[in-house]
């Protein structure tokens, strides 16, 4: 057995803060699983053991929950996770062709990661962007109205620019088309890894 990865003091403090928000400790399990992913890039056994220890439950209980939800990645994924929606509304407007273009440009089929560990492509169910179909997410930041050629450009851009932070508005400007509603308000926060960027988890980017 390898030595377990030690969480940074900052992350441990965040974990304690999250636990304190809930009337019962175990409710912090989902946010803590995201913290574990942010620490190591994906959910490792050591990460799940740490979560179990912090919550006073067993690693098996943690695994039982982690394995239920698709966003907890228990295998390594690329720095950029491209999630292509192929549910009904996106399907009607060409998501299969878009997925094929992205797979082809990335050089990997859905569900796999390129050899550089830079890009993972996946086919996902509805991401709530149906009015701007077909839509994709990069590290859970949404781009709407993406045609196959724009999908290819997105992959090429990720490879070339290697952005530190994935910002939805930037992606939308560069690669998007029609949106389901007027986004109106630009956002400069974004994702720094293949997990959702959300303040209390400490992952929102471009913070000064």
């Amino acid at each position: 057995m390898t030595a377990p990865h030690r969480w940074s003091e900052e992350t441990l403090a965040r974990a304690r803060d999250l636990i304190a928000r809930y009337p019962e400790r175990r409710s912090a399990l989902m946010p803590l699983l995201y913290l574990a992913m942010a620490e190591e890039g994906h959910l490792t056994e050591a990460g799940m053991e740490t979560v179990a220890e912090l919550l006073g439950i067993t690693p098996a209980q943690v695994l039982s929950v982690a394995s239920f939800y698709t966003m907890y990645k228990r295998e390594p994924v690329g720095r950029y996770l491209i999630s292509c929606c192929t549910s009904i509304s996106c399907h009607l407007l060409g998501s299969d062709e878009l997925l094929a273009a992205i797979e082809d440009e990335a050089g990997v089929p859905a569900g796999e990661t390129d050899p550089d560990r830079l890009i993972t492509v996946e086919s996902v169910e509805c991401i709530g962007a149906c009015g701007g179909a077909p839509a994709v997410q990069v590290n859970y930041e949404t781009v709407e109205g993406v045609d196959p050629e724009a999908g290819r450009e997105l992959v090429r851009w990720l490879r070339k620019a290697r952005p530190e932070v994935i910002v939805a508005d930037e992606l939308q400007t560069l690669f998007g088309g029609r949106t389901g509603f007027d986004w109106a308000i630009p956002d400069d926060e974004g994702a720094v890894g293949p997990y959702p960027a959300f303040g209390p988890l400490g992952t929102a980017g471009r913070e000064s």
């Binding site: 928000r21 175990r26 409710s27 989902m30 239920f68 939800y69 698709t70 996902v124």
Partner: peptide, 27 residues
């Protein structure tokens, strides 16, 4: 007020599944 993030399970929109999920269980 606590904002809690799910993790990709449609069934958690069903209210009792959502409560299980919020308690730190499978949805």
């Amino acid at each position: 007020v606590v904002v809690h993030l799910g993790a990709g399970a449609y069934i958690c929109g069903e209210e009792t599944a959502l409560l299980n999920s919020l308690e730190g269980h499978r949805g």
